[in-house]
Amino acid sequence: MTAVVEENTASSAPESQAGAVASFEVTLRIRRYNPEVSAEPTWEEHTVTAYGTDRVLDALHKIKWETDGSLTFRRSCAHGVCGSDAMRINGRNRLACKTLLKDINPDKPITVEPIKGLPVVKDLVVDMEPFFASYREIMPFLVTSGNEPSREHLQSQADRDRFDDTTKCILCAACTSSCPVFWTDGQYFGPAAIVNAHRFIFDSRDEAATQRLEILNDKEGVWRCRTTFNCTEACPRGIEVTKAIQEVKRAMITRAF
């Protein structure tokens, strides 16, 4: 795909240097919402020139910086670590800064929407507060005793590996906002909160596993998970989210029986 575009550019523009990055036109179909103008969201199309190395975020930047400064979205690091720019791109939750335009068929308009299930504040910016409220509820901090500041809490490599997967979470909300159970009424704790609880429940140094299991043993806790795997598919960090949720369920069952 890229190779073809490169050849075309090379033949049509003889002055372009060999190895130059191919450029192409791409249309972004963006869901705009501004409550100060209209209560209804609208779709807006922008066409920009992009390069083979460009990500969706670069296209959004180009629109914001060169065409329409009112386009609103979050981004901080722009390199897939801060978790600010999760959005629904072509119907799937992804980070705009990790999605290359050439990977998602730029021949057709690319739809860009805010993540679902959280209240939209403006354009692609959603209110993350309900998401973080659930995160706070599961006590996302180490609870332990002994070895006061003077010494380290030692841990074997095997013990560290036990929860390695869930330490990767960047709290972008791509998983929680891809969960159909969360979409219904926003009462479910959501995969992200459970993943971060998992990170401490299975940490050999932590002493509040029972408390966290108690918190998640709620009508709106892990038992609302229907294992649809939307979260695992959405996670930009490749965390096996559904597996983590199942492990928390299993811990609860072994504790109860």
Binding site: P35, E36, A39, L118, P119, V120, V121, D127, E129, P130, A133, S134, E137, D185, G186, Q187, E214, I215, N217, D218, K219, E220, G221, W223, R224, M252, I253, A256
Partner: peptide, 23 residues
Amino acid sequence: TPLVASPRSPYVRRKTTRGNFEL
């Protein structure tokens, strides 16, 4: 400027419903 309702109200977890029933 139209009044914008606080988007947060319906999304607060209404009450804690812990217990072994769902388990």
